[in-house]
Simulated scan of single mutants.
Amino acid sequence: MANAKRVGLLFGIVLTILGIVLLTRLSANYFWSILLILLGLLFEFGVLGKGAGRFVPAGILLVIGSLLLACNIIGYDKMSYLWPAFVFAPGFGLFQAYLVKKTKGLLRSSMILIVLSAIFFFTTFFHVGWARMFFGIVLVVLGVVILIKSLRGRVE
């Protein structure tokens, strides 16, 4: 019975939003971005999913829905600057799950994604030319470290 109630709630929200979009003559693009935000909120408040794991899709849907809504308002040409939000989205969801479960793995994973997205935002906004060289060096060093560990048999 509770599952049928959730499905009814979801369809009711979707149809209501679609009706508002049609009545206000908004672009259908607004509908999809708002739908993603609402689905994210349904995960946030536990309507769709239980436990700490629900926060991962909630965070992803909220960030990507907000990004698409912002692009609908300010223009999709800004996506060339806003693309690091796609890296940030799962990091945000993982961080929310960490706040509930307090697992080091969740914190580590979320921080890697959030820091990477911050670096990508910085290099994208300020057109940092040295970033390509820096990331190339970092990738080579990480690759060599992984190769050495795997040859020694210490891969984690």
Rank of each mutant, 00 (worst) to 15 (best):
L26Q: 13
F120D: 05
V140P: 01
V155K: 12
I146L: 14
R6K: 11
W83T: 01
R54C: 04
L69D: 04
M79W: 01
F45P: 02
G51P: 02
M111Q: 05
L39T: 03
V100I: 15
L139V: 10
G129A: 09
I60L: 11
P90N: 08
V138K: 02
A2P: 01
L69E: 09
F95R: 07
I60A: 08
C71T: 12
N29Q: 10
S66F: 05
M79R: 00
T124A: 13
L62P: 01
L26H: 03
V87I: 15
N3C: 00
G136T: 11
F95H: 11
S109V: 01
F55R: 00
Y81Q: 09
G19Q: 07
L67A: 10
L35Y: 08
V63Q: 03
A131S: 15
M1N: 06
G40C: 05
G8T: 10
G153N: 03
T124V: 08
K149D: 12
G143L: 05
F55Q: 01
D77E: 13
A118P: 03
F11N: 09
L69T: 09
L82P: 03
V115N: 00
F122P: 03
F43H: 15
A52T: 03
P84S: 12
R6D: 04
F125K: 04
A97E: 13
H127A: 11
L35M: 14
V138N: 04
A4Q: 10
L99N: 10
I112Y: 14
L23K: 11
I17Y: 05
L151P: 00
V21N: 12
G105F: 10
R108I: 15
I60Y: 07
S110Y: 09
L15Y: 14
G8K: 09
F121T: 06
Q96C: 09
V140D: 04
K101I: 01
L42G: 02
V56C: 01
K104D: 11
V138W: 05
P57R: 11
M1V: 07
V141Y: 08
L139M: 12
G153E: 02
I13C: 08
F43Q: 10
R54F: 02
F126A: 09
A2I: 11
L147S: 11
I34P: 00
N3L: 13
H127E: 12
L107K: 12
M133T: 13
Y81T: 10
G136D: 09
V115T: 12
G8R: 05
Y30H: 14
F121D: 05
D77W: 10
F120A: 15
Y98C: 07
K101M: 08
R132F: 14
F122N: 05
F92C: 07
V87Q: 04
Y76S: 12
L94K: 00
L62S: 00
G40V: 06
F31G: 07
L99D: 00
I60P: 04
P57Q: 12
F86L: 14
F31Y: 14
H127D: 13
F95W: 14
V14R: 00
K101E: 13
L39A: 03
V145F: 08
A97Q: 13
S80G: 09
G49A: 06
L62Q: 02
L41I: 12
A89N: 04
R152M: 14
L18I: 00
L67R: 02
V141H: 06
G105D: 13
F121L: 11
V145Y: 10
I34T: 10
A131I: 04
G75D: 11
L23A: 14
L107Q: 07
F11G: 14
L9F: 11
F121Y: 14
I34R: 02
R154H: 08
L68H: 06
W130V: 15
V155I: 14
